[in-house]
Every structure is written in C-alpha cells, then in structure tokens.
Amino acid sequence: MPSVPMPQDTTVVRFEDVSLHYDETPALDHLSFSMKAGQTCVILGAAGSGKTMLLKCTVGLAKPDTGHVFLFGRDVTAWTENQMFDIRSKVGILFQEGGLFDSLTVAENVAYPLENQRAAAGHPMPSPDEIMQRVRDSLRFVELEHTLEKFPSELSGGMRRRVGIARATVTAPPLVLYDSPTAGLDPITANTIINLIIKERDLRNTAAIMVTHRFLDGHLMANFRYNPNNGNVELHAKGQGEDSAVSTKFLVMKEGRLVFEGPEHELLASPDPYVQKFCRAGTS
C-alpha cells in the first residue's frame, strides 16, 4: 500500500452505505457522504443521533458492520489496529471533553502524538528539543503557553478544550475532527473555541469535520474567515470567490440516518421540521 501525495481536490473522507449497530439499536444507518481536502463539514444532530460514532468510524475507533469507509482515498474498513496507526497520524481529533490524559501534564499531553504516532508508524522519533519546540508552538497557538507544567484537572473546561485542540493539531494533520467542541461551555468561551478552529483551518488549510448541536457553530465556520493580516476572525464577504475551495457543507443526522446534506442556504430553506429545529435553535 504505497502512500500517494494528494492533490487539492481529492476526497479525504468517504462513507459508502455505512451501518453500525450498538447492541440492538442502529448508531449509523446506511450512511453515505464524502468530503474533499480543504473542505469543512458541519454535522448537526440531536444527542444520540450517531454523530460521535461517525467520527469514530472515520478513524477506525469503531468498525462498521456493513459498508465501507475511505480515508485519504483508501478503504480502511478492514484494516487492523496496527495498520491504522500510520493513517491516524494524518488525522487530528478533539474529543468531546477534550480526552486529555489526566495523569500527564499539559506539555506531555500535547507531546503525546509526536512521541507515539511516529513510533507506531515506524518513523524515527523527533528529538526532544524539536518536540518541545512544536509543543510550545502548538500551545502558543491556543494561547496557553503558560500552562505547560499544569495538569488537566487544574484547567477550566474551555482551557481543556483548547489544550485538546493543541494536541489534535500538533502534528499538522491535513484532516481534523472536532467532537462537540462547544458542548457545555458558556457562549463566550464557545466562540473563542470556534474562532480557534477557524484560525487553525484557514492558516493550515486543513479539512475539518465538526460535530455539534449548535447551529451557530456551523454558521460561524461557514461564514467567517481568519484574516492573517490583522489576526482577527472576520465575516467573509460573499462573492469574493477566490477561496471557494474552502466550502462548508452541512449534514444533519437523525437516529443514525442522514436527513440533510448541502450548503447553509439550502439548510435554512429546508422544509423538514427536524432540520428546521436546529436552524431556529441557533438563530434565535
């Protein structure tokens, strides 16, 4: 299996008729979608609609019962855990509550993928100095450079989420998955997190899948861009289509099924009451 460098328009993630049962209830029900490099995918859905399971399937943390999952153009459905390690190093994940190791310091947490992913994939380890430098860079990005020696339990919920983002992006992966990055946070902290995600996406031009139940998160992802000139996240003027590659797609899930797929204006115009519920909840 040789790894092929990817042009900009390749498909990063593709689900083909994926079903997954958790005990007796279906967590994913004949789900199909695809997303391209540099694209942003916002997945909306109520609790228990299978959003998290979709992310887990993407990186092989859960295996589908039927169907196929393609990651970077390769069918990873039947890959063993050891085969997955290599490809997982190209994917960053922010877990729902941050998923930080609470026995390790912030610096050790962020260094973890650098120290383990490459080793697992059989690459030589980067030097300790190089690791430290990248950990600092990554933590500076989320403005938490002063917390290097702290433990996750000493941080607030929002800070833990930011450390999670630093850990997910420290290897500069071309695809980052965000599992409910704003769940349980106050609106101001939530917006800080979304701004960071937008900044990360636009600076490194990464593809992003974001699972959320807040329509506002998706709205921000779709319409705001990071401006490297003044360092702010700004409303993206429509019609300046020069970066049309950064397109945002919305998916709405209900009980493991995909009930909507399309851009924001179609989402807002959708007659489906379930879909409408998310738009209203977000805009009101």
Binding site: L61, N82, R88, Q96, D102, N116, Q117, A121
Partner: peptide
C-alpha cells in the same frame, strides 16, 4: 474513568495500543 472520559479512544487515536 479513562474509558468514560474517552482517554482510551484518545490513546488509540494518538498511536498507542
């Protein structure tokens, strides 16, 4: 506790068995 706070999944995702 590691399992319910997704640290086990995080471990797998970050390249450790």
């Amino acid at each position: 506790s590691m399992k319910v706070t997704e640290q086990i999944d995080a471990m797998r995702a970050l390249g450790t068995d």
